[in-house]
Computed example of a mutant assay.
Amino acid sequence: MAKILHAKYMAKCIGCYSCMLACARVIRHSFSLSKSAIQIRTAGGLQSRFLADICRGCLDPACARACHCGALLPRSGGGVKFIPDKCMGCQDCVDACVVKTIRFDHESNKPVICIQCGTCTRFCPHQVITMEEREDGR
């Protein structure tokens, strides 16, 4: 069964951005946090918690439906597979994302999109983000 990202332990997050750096470095070959598909941010205020903006791994991803060039394909178990060579840079996937976690990289003319690979989970020092099997129908 396919696994998807979960961030249910955000109370343990220390805001080290290791997950973001790992995603940007391994997937996008960049040291820029802006190239990460996962974004860690504060909820606001001096003593607030951290929040994770992550792909929810939709079973019927709107971003894939909006992609007319075949660069985004529904992934078994939820989320999408991204084929960069097919991407035309139209940004339709950015507009279609229901949780607004897809951003567009104007340097590469490609979306910054989570592929549910789990790289971020391997580099989180407190196991805040995990890969979990999706329960049927969720």
Score class of each variant (00 low, 15 high):
A52L: 09
A52F: 03
D53A: 14
D53W: 04
I54V: 15
C55T: 09
R56T: 09
R56L: 09
G57C: 02
G57V: 03
C58E: 08
L59V: 07
D60T: 11
P61F: 02
P61K: 01
A62M: 06
C63I: 09
A64F: 09
R65Y: 03
R65M: 04
A66F: 12
A66I: 11
C67E: 04
C69K: 12
C69H: 15
C69R: 13
C69L: 07
C69N: 14
A71E: 08
L73V: 15
P74W: 04
P74H: 04
R75M: 09
S76R: 12
G79S: 07
G79F: 00
V80L: 10
F82T: 03
F82V: 08
I83S: 08
I83A: 10
I83R: 05
I83Y: 14
P84I: 13
K86M: 12
K86C: 04
C87M: 10
M88Y: 13
M88N: 14
M88V: 15
G89H: 12
G89P: 10
G89N: 13
G89M: 12
C90D: 13
C90Q: 10
Q91N: 13
D92G: 11
C93D: 07
V94S: 07
D95A: 14
D95H: 14
V98S: 13
V98A: 11
V99T: 15
V99C: 07
K100Y: 13
K100R: 15
K100G: 09
T101Q: 13
T101H: 12
T101A: 11
T101Y: 07
I102Y: 08
R103P: 03
D105F: 11
H106L: 10
E107R: 03
S108I: 07
S108Q: 11
N109T: 12
K110N: 03
P111R: 03
V112Q: 04
V112F: 04
I113M: 08
C114N: 08
C114A: 05
I115W: 00
I115H: 00
Q116F: 00
C117N: 05
C117G: 05
G118A: 06
C120P: 03
T121M: 00
F123Y: 11
C124F: 00
C124T: 06
P125Q: 02
P125F: 01
P125G: 01
Q127Y: 00
V128F: 00
I129R: 01
I129A: 02
I129N: 00
